[in-house]
Design a protein around this nucleic acid. Sequence first.
DNA 1: ATGGCTTGCACCGCAAGA
Length: 261
Amino acid sequence: MKLATWNVNSLKVRLPHVLDWLASSQTDVLCLQELKLTDDKFPVAELEAAGYSSYFTGQKTYNGVAILVKQGHDVDATSVVRNIPGFEDPQQRVISVTVSGMRVISAYFPNGQAPGTEKFSYKLAWLAALQTWLRDELLRYPKLALLGDFNIAPEDRDVHDPKAWEGQNLVSPEERAVFAALLEMGLSDTFRLFEQADKLFSWWDYRMMGFRRNAGLRIDHILTSPALTSQVVACSIDKVPRGWEQPSDHTPVVAELKLAG
DNA sequence: ATGGCTTGCACCGCAAGA
């Protein structure tokens, strides 16, 4: 079972890439972020024709998240939950669905702009709500996977130039403390379960030839609860789509699970 | 050197991303 996450930066523009990548990767569950389209514009039929069922929540211009599930998997359609229950927010950033007894969450964490700004305060409030909600979800769903664009680079080794980035948005101590708190809840950063080469990132700035210079950050993550972590056999970043024509600035992160039974 | 690309929306420039 292959689980993946990809911030596509407009599903309208990136649909061909998504279809190509699904066909070549044979991913079972793909979490998408930054759809940037309303629900009536979601390409349900195209994905259905490619063999995937779609669960999504979108809005005009910004945000929007989805979970694509390869047909044949056991999906409880009544289990779909949009956003963080109890956290009033017009921004569509979270969707959850149960696939083969596993709770899958696709999340687009707020960017935060810069410490000290209103957007940063919103990010911290959102992160607090996420943690409270997740503690409860982990009790309800022992098998839980949180995938998405976290907009947090957890450690200096996840940053191309830690000195230049020190204290800035995406790497600040407040944000990293939240990521650490998620791990303390029992979640595992699946990428770090395995030996990895240095300087592997999931996002590169469009400007200043960021990708060619490998001036990137690892901010897209797949976290699993203990009952799932024991079944994770691999996690990798597929940087190939970042090199395609008219790419997203993010590239897919993939985890492979050997599900018992 | 606070820009530099890319997207969407609405218009010929802006906000937002990270």
